[in-house]
Nucleic acid binder design. Structure first.
Lengths: 145, 145
DNA sequence: ATGTAATAGTTGTTTTTGTAACTAACAAGC
DNA sequence: GCTTGTTAGTTACAAAAACAACTATTACAT
C-alpha cells in the first residue's frame, strides 16, 4: 500500500492535530486552571454533566471517550470542591449518579460562555462553511476507532 | 462580545481537536512505541532531524514548539539508543549540533513510510480538497499563538 | 575589564497520567 | 444456593509531563 510519492511528515495528520490542539487549548486551559483550579479532565466531566444533567461515570466515559480512572479522579476532585454530588442508585448499588450542584452549574455556565467567545476568536479568520466542515471532519476523525 | 445564541460545548474547537488528535494518534503511537521503544517527543525530535538534517535543540524547539526540557530528555534517550550524535559547536560552546546516525535515519525512513500509509488511511473517506483544506486550517490554528 | 543580562541546555522536584490490580455488586447458568 | 463471569468504580504503583531552579557560556554596556 506504500505509495512511491514522497511524503512530508510535517503534514502528517496526527502531528498537525496535536499541534493545533495544544496551541488552541492553551489559552482556555489557563481559564479553568487559574480561575477554578481545574484540570482538563475535570472540565470535561463538568461540561458533560452540564449538558446532559444527571449521569453516571460510565456514561461520561462512553460519551467523552475517557478512561474510567480519569473520570474517577476528576469526579473525586469535583466532589471535593462541591461542584457535584454523588448518589448511589437503589436499583444497582454499584452505580453512582453524578449531578452538578448549583455552584457547579454556575461554573459550567461561566466556562461555557468563555468557551463560546474563545471559539469565536479561534474561527475568526475562517468562513462559516470552512468552520463547519472543520468540525465535521474532526468529529469523524475523533470517532473513527 | 458574548453572543446570545446558545453554544454547544461539544462543538468547541479545542475539544474537538483534542479528541481527534488523541484518537488519531493512538495507532501510530503504538508503532514507534512498540517497535522502537520511543516516546512521542522522541519521534518528534527524530523526524525534525530527518527532515532538516543537522540542527540544534533550540532550532527543534522553535520548529516543533516544544519546550527545551522535553527536547533535552528526548535527545538524551535518542543518543543512548545511538539514533543521533551530539557535537559541540566551536564558535559557541553552549550549542550542540544534533545529527541522526545512519541507524537513526533508517528508523526515520521506516516510521515516515508507516506514517504515510497511516495518513492515507485516515484521510480515506475524505476528498483530496477537504484533506488539503483540513491541513491548512490545522496549520493556521497551530501557528496562531 | 567587569558587572549584568541573555542564551543553550540540564537537572531536580512536583503533578499528572497510564496501567494493572483490586473491591463490591450484580447476573446467569447449573 | 453457589460457582463463574461481568460491570462499576477505586486504588496503588510506575511512567511521563510540567515547572522551576540550576550550570555554563556568551553578549553587551559601562
Amino acid at each position: 500500500m506504500k505509495t512511491t510519492k514522497d511524503f512530508d511528515v510535517r503534514q502528517f495528520l496526527p502531528y498537525l492535530l496535536n499541534q493545533a490542539a495544544e496551541a488552541s487549548s492553551l489559552e482556555f486551559q489557563k481559564v479553568y486552571k487559574d480561575k477554578y483550579g481545574m484540570l482538563r479532565n475535570e472540565w470535561r466531566v463538568l461540561f458533560h454533566l452540564g449538558i446532559y444533567g444527571r449521569m453516571t461515570a460510565s456514561d461520561i466515559g462512553a460519551r467523552a471517550q475517557m478512561h474510567k480512572t480519569k473520570i474517577s479522579r476528576a469526579v473525586q476532585r469535583l466532589a471535593e470542591r462541591r461542584y457535584l454530588t454523588r448518589t448511589r442508585a437503589d436499583t444497582d448499588r454499584r452505580v453512582e449518579y453524578l449531578t452538578l450542584t448549583s455552584a457547579g452549574q454556575q461554573v459550567y455556565r461561566d466556562l461555557k460562555g468563555i468557551a463560546q467567545d474563545y471559539d469565536a476568536a479561534l474561527t475568526d479568520g475562517i468562513s462559516a462553511e470552512e468552520a463547519k466542515m472543520l468540525r465535521g471532519l474532526l468529529l469523524r476523525l475523533a470517532q473513527r476507532d
